[in-house]
Design a protein around this nucleic acid. Sequence first.
DNA 1: ACTTTCCGTAACAATGCATGTTGCACTTTG
DNA 2: CAAAGTGCAACATGCATTGTTACGGAAAGT
Lengths: 130, 130
Amino acid sequence: MVHVLVHMALLGGRETSDTIARMLNTNPVVVRRMMGLLKARGIVHSEGGRGGGWTLQRPLAELTVLDVQDALDQGPILAPGLSNDQPVCPVERAANTALTAAFGVGEDVIRTEFAKLTLADIAQSAVEGH
Amino acid sequence: MVHVLVHMALLGGRETSDTIARMLNTNPVVVRRMMGLLKARGIVHSEGGRGGGWTLQRPLAELTVLDVQDALDQGPILAPGLSNDQPVCPVERAANTALTAAFGVGEDVIRTEFAKLTLADIAQSAVEGH
DNA sequence: ACTTTCCGTAACAATGCATGTTGCACTTTG
DNA sequence: CAAAGTGCAACATGCATTGTTACGGAAAGT
């Protein structure tokens, strides 16, 4: 999805679900599902009818990977596979809280990284061709 | 699994796959699959035949959550959902490298956290009953 | 008016992956 | 020799993601 948004900005225009689907080797309905989530966050805008399609609502410099992440799957990025087999067992509870804490630290770091990374950064790397 | 290992230490003994399976609401074969991985890393030992079962090979203080993690699923803990639809596209490549870098930072942090966390720590929390 | 080209959505099918299950060979102890 | 274990392979099941089909509605061209 990040890929798609950067492309939309670089190509400067309006893209239809069909076009995007071909870019991703998938089909238009899947694209609409995901773009709908981005639309709900005000990241893109859609226009129906002939000549319609999707347009970016913000410059890439004001759009971070975190914005995209939160739009697409709300909830934590990192999911510790906690067990819930014996909810009363103090050992299980201690293990769960310890693991949750460790994942929480990682979650914070990743969110910080994502927040620092704008789509403009990615666009620039792509143009420079690393 | 962390849960199980702490229990084995606290109960002080040998546990069969059957017993462990009941603790986890699962069945013995699944337990053997996972314990086999721990065995391959020298974390536990198994004995066949009547009276057999699983025993810990190290004190809990010398066993970190990272050891368990690496035994159970080798490979990175965090998996960025990279796309591989247009491998040549510079935008896709730029997006992938940027995301990989961000996840790498998170991965390092989590591994550090896991390495600091011994099963003895968890056992202590469990006994103290938080 | 009518056709074409879009998005929006619901219902359903297919796919992949982790988990669960069965069955059998082998080992150790009573 | 029977009972109680692990070890392993093959297969079944369940669940979430993804893909698909089939609509309806809106906007623009003719």
